[in-house]
Amino acid sequence: MAAGLDQNAVILRGRSDGIAIEIASGRWEDLLQLLSHRLEQTDGFFAGGYVVVDVGTRQLNEAEVDLLGRVLASYALQPGLVRTTDERTFQAALALGIPCAHIGLDGSVINEAMPAQADDNTFPFFVYRGSLRSGQQLYRHEHIMIMGDVNPGAQVASNGDILIWGRLRGLAHAGVEGNLNAIIAALDLDPVQLRIGTVVAAGQSGQPLQPGQTTANGPRWGAARTADRRPEIARLVNGRLLIETWDDVKTTGAPLLKRRRA
């Protein structure tokens, strides 16, 4: 036991479907030791249950969040949701693929990323609220749903589909692990590069313009917003990447939407 640590620094509460853990301030290693001690006392009662961990305002890096995951794993528990008010902690949990929620100081949800309710017929969905900026990366095994923009320089990758309720102007890679049925869809599909499985296609945005030339949508992603943009869907047809507007898919591509019940 860590000496000098408030015994109430780690609080365990039972829930109907598992357990809620609240971690107050203190040294992270000491707190995890205390948590470990508490879980020991439950004698495996919550094993396999749903775990919500509230880490408060603390700023944690990837290694520290990972340590939390390991402590829980040693008691046959999985972090079902990490709640934090800290953006850095949120990003760390995100990078580790742990469902997480970024909570404002007023208790409102700023950002959340979690696998949506899965049933037997579908891949689970991973929902990300917010925009991805240059240098930011999101990689998930599940389908990804982004409610926001993917800016140039940002990367998003999934083994399933990638749906973007916003503009895709960075790099999107669907079916990273070889799923050739994956699709990429966005309200405004203007990527630097698209990849599905092993097929790579350069976006219009990546092409150099001739001096004085502007594209149909203006100079790259600049004036595109004023042009007539429609929701588009990219998929593989005979090994080539095909991009169609939603209107075309809706009328002729019904099989696309019904395919695959893997």
């Binding site: 953006e87 850095r88 990003q91 900026r133 240059s134 240098g135 930011q136 800016n151 140039p152 320089g153």
Partner: peptide
């Protein structure tokens, strides 16, 4: 592109 990255770092 660089400004966007800096904003991301500032937020994170």
């Amino acid at each position: 592109r660089d400004a966007d990255k800096v904003i991301y770092l500032l937020e994170r």
